[in-house]
Design a protein around this nucleic acid. Structure first.
Lengths: 298, 298
DNA sequence: CCAGAGCCATTAGCGTTCCTTAACCCTCCC
DNA sequence: GGGAGGGTTAAGGAACGCTAATGGCTCTGG
């Protein structure tokens, strides 16, 4: 067996993109080309590597294995290219940063602005990546820097082969409608809010996992009436008096003030915002890490 | 810059083989093909990667960098292939072992015989590799197992990315001609042997480095009159009364007895025999490691 | 000193591979 | 039911990489 690396790259890109068509667009090929290469790879391996479904493809278990190994191969290639650049004293001309939606509002713009002043010649690209995705993109070198988060009770993604460090701790604060019956309280136990309707993510969304875990530990049952993962929508719903919610502090700081009150739970919780990158980052990646830490410490 | 991985493989194979022609033979291509691929790679990188000399080529400094990265890439590909084999429960059909010359006499044959009984369907290939070479072959996956050694005072090869463990300690013993003036002694200081002619390797050969280091520490000057790295030749020279030498114990045990005496230095020295392989070896590599440990403990 | 052997670079030419185009099948959704 | 998005298949054409042949270079041996 001799795996062709270009085909491996196709598999990885397809897995990252979620569909053959999207991967083809990213790579500048037609979907037909990728389909053929993928079929050939499956013939070589002797087993299906992706399940074709409507709306896209998903790797099979064996496909997952090969994707993760393929990411390591591509990562090693990227490191080789970086080494050549370093040895020849050539500057890096591109930097790609992935971030989750709610981090993009305050943290990232400030750091990006500083970066642009310091490295005007480096082309920046920003990519929306919802945790816990994105680790594979860092491993394969497609992504230079990933800004991700870890909510309480959410099992941590494996960071094998990459470096992950906490950027900041972001408290999850309690948001109540104006005029809520507990508006006078400073800190509230979860048990005082069992009669309220909650606004959180759908099952599986980090915010929801954290909320469910807290409820379980407090021995209470909460009623999630509205499911959204968008905190702007959440705040609008709270402002309309439809329920209560847990919202990260950074999101509140950059949000328009509305008809809601911010309080805290008696058992404080927080999400961690993390940076993920390949080991031993060099400039300009290391600079961007610095700027992000600066922005986070304000 | 987008490094082509097949060209990287060419570079690595050429570096390992020491010449384009030899690498071409190994890979089943013509020398012309590899020459072209190598030239194209150099054009992409923008700098020379190998120095063409008579009798072969040697990597430039930048070439060395790219070779070591290329080895990691190829190693990751081999790991991917192994993962596929494991996932599909397919047996491994080939195992390649590299060893230095003087280990092949007792240790390796015993282990290989056991291995052949346990895994008759696995094709074995044995390769002569003189330390400190061979680590790159393990990294790239071309070699499954490397039996190497570390002599005192010899700077250790970097084992980054691979696993190295001591297989056994092999004392370096003093060999004197029959009838030597110190034949009655059991242990001798190096200072007692400054009048003798020594048999050792040429400068740079591990045996010689160890001997020079010991002489330096003892504050004495030794006279190396005969240079050979072949211990059979060494023993024959000693037997002929031409000088004294340091010879590994394992070599003595598998050698024909001759007209020489075996004694020890008062400051005992030993070489270490080490096994090098990729991390997390699976069967049958792990079995071979076991058999080698068994053979070493006899 | 010259002939021969090795080794590498170059060029011409061929063969294979891979990509694109185009058409068809499928599911989902308005 | 038709359109949109996604995946596959078949056929042509372009590009890439290999082989073969030639020439230059160095070292070696008679």
């Amino acid at each position: 067996m001799a795996l062709d690396i270009e085909r491996l790259r196709v598999l990885v890109e397809v897995a990252h993109s979620g569909s053959i068509a999207a991967a083809a667009k990213r790579m500048g090929f037609t979907a037909s080309a990728l389909s053929q290469q993928l079929a050939k790879l499956e013939r070589e391996v002797g087993e299906r590597l992706v399940d074709r479904g409507p709306g896209g493809v998903r790797p099979t278990p064996l496909g997952e294995v090969l994707v993760s190994h393929g990411e390591r191969v591509l990562g090693a290639v990227h490191e080789a290219e970086d080494a050549i650049r370093d040895a020849r004293r050539l500057p890096r001309e591109h930097l790609s940063v992935g971030t989750f939606a709610s981090a993009g509002q305050a943290l990232v713009p400030a750091a990006l602005a500083t970066f642009r002043r310091a490295h005007p010649q480096v082309r920046l690209s920003l990519l929306d990546i919802e945790p816990p995705d994105g680790y594979g993109l860092v491993t394969s070198g497609n992504l230079d820097l990933l800004i991700t988060h870890r909510y309480p009770d959410v099992p941590p993604a494996s960071a094998a082969g990459v470096h992950r460090a906490r950027l900041m701790t972001d408290p999850l604060r309690l948001v109540l409608p104006a005029g809520h019956r507990h508006a006078a309280a400073g800190r509230l136990p979860l048990a005082a809010l069992t009669a309220d309707e909650w606004i959180s993510g759908a099952p599986g969304v980090p915010n929801r996992i954290t909320l469910d875990g807290a409820a379980r530990r407090a021995g209470v049952e909460l009623h999630v009436a509205y499911e959204t993962r968008d905190y702007a929508v959440t705040l609008a719903l709270v402002g309309a008096g439809l329920g209560v919610a847990l919202v990260p502090d950074t999101t509140l700081r950059s949000a328009e003030h509305g008809a809601y009150l911010v309080r805290d739970l008696d058992q404080p919780m927080a999400r961690e915002i993390c940076l993920v990158h390949r080991p031993r980052p060099r400039t300009p990646i290391s600079d961007m890490v610095t700027y992000l830490h600066d922005a986070a410490s304000l």
